Computed example of a mutant assay.
Amino acid sequence: MRAALTRIERAARLDGAADQLQRRVWSTFRSQRVRDLLHGVWLGHPLHPALAQVPIGAWTSAAILDLLPGPRRPATVLVAVGVAAAVPAAAAGANDWAELSRDQRRVGLVHAAANAVGTVCYAGSLVARLAGRHRAGRTLGFLGLAAVNGGAYLGGHLAYKQAAGVNQGVPELHQMSDGWRPVADLAAIPEATLVTRKVDDVAVVVYRDGDEVTVMLERCAHQGGPLGSGEVARVDGRTCVICPWHGSTFELGGGEVIHGPAGTDQQVLPTRVIGGTLHTRLP
């Protein structure tokens, strides 16, 4: 399996289809509000993994009922629920996928194809069950379950091996030691300007607004972009930093994500000033 997944990651022949699909996703989800909704900005957590639990859970439950004697209606209802829930899950997944790096998009494309095959099988299963052909419906259901579980395996590879959808900045915290650490002389930090400093070799962004000072991790939560090179702007009435790579927008006061593609907040560190020196520590 490792060798097969590595081949998919390196399969440049998938790029043509992936690039075309990426453009279609962007043209479909043009509204920033819609993209933020599907990224899970409002939730502070990627939306796609949460939505995907509904069709997988419904279809797995239907498969268990198909193996047991008894009425067929409950399994049919669960198959229908899974087919309906697959639509918003696929929309959220496509929206996230379009913002990934090239090697991640290759695996994501195969992940989506497997789930599409599974959904088609379950749609056929639903039609067969409603027509009274329960044996055909069960067969198509088991085929669909095999396909979506293959897709789920690829989704796990995307998350755990390729780090798609996870907060890219948080692992930096593991390189910081406990206790308060000096960052800079407060007088040397200019007003309303992003400044990059190091704390235990971890890059942080420092922003001063009067007596309020923010220290946040410099690596963007989405794909590790350099927030220190980002733009400071007023967005929805809040002072924010905009990542120069993909446009993820975070409030400088508390790190809350305002606009995606990031689906999680940017990590902000506690601060204190002693003797004119700004200090920070692990949360």
Rank of each mutant, 00 (worst) to 15 (best):
Met1Ser: 13
Arg2Thr: 15
Ala3Thr: 13
Leu5Met: 09
Thr6Phe: 05
Arg10Asn: 13
Ala11Arg: 00
Gly16Ser: 14
Ala18Asp: 01
Ala18Cys: 02
Leu21Trp: 13
Leu21Val: 12
Gln22Lys: 10
Arg24Phe: 04
Trp26Thr: 01
Phe29Ser: 08
Phe29Ala: 15
Val34Ile: 14
His39Phe: 10
Gly44Tyr: 09
Gly44Arg: 05
His48Tyr: 13
His48Leu: 08
Pro49Met: 09
Ala50Phe: 14
Leu51Ile: 03
Thr60Arg: 00
Thr60Leu: 15
Leu65Glu: 04
Asp66Asn: 09
Leu67Trp: 10
Leu68His: 10
Leu68Ile: 03
Pro74Arg: 12
Pro74Tyr: 10
Val79Tyr: 09
Ala80Ile: 07
Gly82His: 01
Ala84Arg: 07
Ala91His: 14
Ala98Lys: 12
Gln104Ile: 03
Arg105Cys: 10
Val117Ile: 02
Gly118Met: 12
Tyr122Ala: 01
Ala123Pro: 06
Gly124Pro: 03
Val127Leu: 15
Ala128Tyr: 00
Arg129Phe: 06
Arg133Ala: 13
Gly137Tyr: 05
Arg138Gln: 07
Thr139Asp: 11
Leu140Arg: 05
Leu140Glu: 04
Gly141Val: 00
Gly144Arg: 06
Ala147Gly: 11
Gly150Leu: 15
Tyr153Cys: 04
Tyr153Lys: 13
Gln168Ile: 00
His174Leu: 14
Met176Gln: 12
Leu186Arg: 11
Ala188Leu: 12
Pro190Ala: 06
Leu194Asn: 04
Thr196Glu: 13
Arg197Ser: 12
Val202Trp: 06
Ala203Thr: 04
Tyr207His: 15
Asp209Tyr: 07
Asp211Leu: 09
Glu212Tyr: 05
Thr214Trp: 02
Val215Thr: 08
Val215Ser: 10
Leu217Tyr: 01
Ala221Phe: 05
His222Lys: 08
Gln223Asn: 14
Pro226Gly: 10
Gly228Met: 13
Val232Asn: 01
Ala233Trp: 02
Arg234Lys: 15
Arg238Thr: 13
Cys240His: 02
Val241Ser: 02
Ile242Glu: 01
Pro244His: 02
His246Leu: 11
Leu252Gln: 07
Gly253Val: 00
Val257Tyr: 08
Pro270Val: 06
Gly275Asn: 07
Leu278Met: 06
His279Ala: 09
Leu282Phe: 08
